[in-house]
Write a protein that binds this DNA or RNA. Sequence first.
DNA 1: CACGAATTGATATGTTATAACATTGCTCAT
DNA 2: ATGAGCAATGTTATAACATATCAATTCGTG
Lengths: 172, 172
Amino acid sequence: MVRGRRDAAPVLWHRKHDHRRCFEDALARAVSLCRRCGARLTAIRRRVLEVVWQGHRPLGAYEILETLRAERAGVAPPTVYRALDFLLGHGLVHRIESLNAFVGCSDPGSSHGGQFLICRTCGTAAELNDRRIALAIEGCSSESGFHVHHATIEVSGLCPNCQQSDAKVANA
Amino acid sequence: MVRGRRDAAPVLWHRKHDHRRCFEDALARAVSLCRRCGARLTAIRRRVLEVVWQGHRPLGAYEILETLRAERAGVAPPTVYRALDFLLGHGLVHRIESLNAFVGCSDPGSSHGGQFLICRTCGTAAELNDRRIALAIEGCSSESGFHVHHATIEVSGLCPNCQQSDAKVANA
DNA sequence: CACGAATTGATATGTTATAACATTGCTCAT
DNA sequence: ATGAGCAATGTTATAACATATCAATTCGTG
């Protein structure tokens, strides 16, 4: 449970990153993952996944809804929530509890709780998946006799870019 | 930031625990803490704190509201939310993001993010405050150049009691 | 093609949280 | 004492997030 796989996370802010590329990769992985397990990545589900990925920050369900409504009439909240449930169930997106928002999973296919660094200035969220954190939590929990099912880890703070911006403002 | 102070957490489930006593202690600490920093622990705020502590599991704002309404007429949501904001601001309660609920802080006065073990069967939440977890998160974050402000850590699973109950059911 | 199951549409409603402004009541300088 | 200033609370309305329910449609399969 709560298996971390990478120690060095490919954090969003480390380098300029090709948004289109990362999004297309995610979509391709989703398609192949669904094909393998016989799940139906229908048009709506696929579109919701695209919208979530293109936002590249956690999006609220009603933000997604607005985007869909601009494309086709008559989309209602249940449509979005059902698509999100599907995507959550297949590990293609994560829910950010502290924001009531959703974000694409950067490592679908591997079973893992999400670990997120969320910038409270620019709103971007980087998915971390660090074994040390998972192990620390698993360790403490089992010392208390607690059996872990899922760990929600959401760290709020300042991303590197926004720290710089802050400094500039302070110096001005 | 996110300083853990104890390594061995006094987890709720370790022993039978005197509910009245723990609640009275919490209230006494709150009173003295507010006196020291000049904050006004008014009747409403105090009552909300009592209700939250007596629940001894995370309570939703509207659950608290119902309790208050049974005692005095005309209490509305803002009343509860304002009291909760005050209590959150002074570190007397924590918000559980994954439940949209509130729980008394077992260690007010020390600055700390909350770490919670939440049983998905009985609903109780035990506050942990483990340095190892805090350090792991601080470490990973700073490796990514991220400056931590607040860490939300909410672990869902089975408490010792409910693991036993499950086993009994399975054997029956 | 017809069947059953999964998906989506449509409407209504439940749940959580805050905005906005009026009122009360306390403190403190005069 | 007294009233200006401010913090707290009351009151109403509404925003934001989420789900229940049932009808209609679509899709894969025999």
